[in-house]
Design a binder for these strands. Structure first.
Lengths: 157, 157
DNA sequence: ACGCAGTAGCTGCGCGACGCAGCTAATTTA
DNA sequence: TAAATTAGCTGCGTCGCGCAGCTACTGCGT
């Protein structure tokens, strides 16, 4: 059985602190999309490309949570905005690789430069031991969220 | 000057771990909206109501990042879905208070019950000292994100 | 070698969420 | 009391999205 102190800490984290942060993150994502003049999906797509490198439209559709048709239009917009390029796959002539342009990467990272600076400053008071704890936590939170993504999508209810 | 170990930890956090989590959070938010059969803004609205209690349409519009007109339609949808109620403000007859229904609260928290359980399990290995560190970090990250929202918004701001 | 199912991506169409501008009603101010 | 301000709601155009169907290419089986 958990002691009360610990229970209160966990409850505060999962019921208040983390959800509050998550809500702000979603709002910020929308704000960034509005600021860049693109759809939220487009920003998400650029994030995925920035993290995973070139990918096919089909893979991007899965990552972003769109149908392949909508992903095709999304890529059209990003190409028109000069953020990505369509590159033919020589090995399979059906496939197309979507590749972020330097300008696309620069634009999206510029939008987050302020937040990164703020966060670095907020991390300053923590010692190395604490930073390791935080990193471990963030990674586990990422795993949990990703896992939930694969268990939740049951539209057939 | 920071030692290299510390610099690597901070860089990993702000350039990989946190963005990776944030991307998953945005995807999950969209997945939950799809699952509940409502717009992403609607889910965000329910979150805000859950955390802050009854609010006016204007306040909700600000919190969610919509115009008052779009917020009005959003509330129409949530009323139709049985998630919120419009309650007249007796003190100011122009104003309307939006109040979540028990059913609305229940539905949105049910959608996140799995994630909360997962997260509680992931927090089990951390001792009380580590949990305090994590809580402190999450709160500061929340503050940073919220602050960025007010500095980034519209170019006309 | 040939045909046929499977895969990858793109397009016509309708739906719905959004912003904008304008409206009414109620409150506040001069 | 009249004018200005605030709160919320509605017509209309725009645009992102899913769905279904299409073409092009691959690879499997006979």
């Amino acid at each position: 059985m958990m002691d009360e102190e610990r229970q209160a800490l966990v409850a505060e984290l999962v019921k208040n602190a983390i959800p509050g942060w998550a809500i702000a993150v979603v709002r910020l994502n929308k704000a960034v999309a509005d600021r860049l003049g693109v759809a939220e999906s487009d920003v998400q797509c650029l994030h995925v490309l920035d993290r995973l490198g070139p990918a096919t439209p089909g893979a991007l559709a899965k990552q972003v949570g769109l149908t392949t048709g909508s992903a095709s239009r999304m890529i059209d917009r990003l190409v028109a905005a000069g953020c990505v390029r369509r590159v033919a796959d020589p090995g399979d002539r059906r496939r197309v690789l979507i590749e972020p342009t330097p300008d696309g990467i620069a634009r999206v990272s510029a939008a987050y430069a302020g937040l990164i600076t703020r966060t670095e400053q907020s991390l300053a008071p923590f010692d190395d031991r604490a930073l390791e704890t935080i990193l471990e936590f963030v990674r586990s939170a990422h795993r949990d969220t990703a896992a939930e993504l694969h268990h939740l999508p049951t539209p057939t209810d």
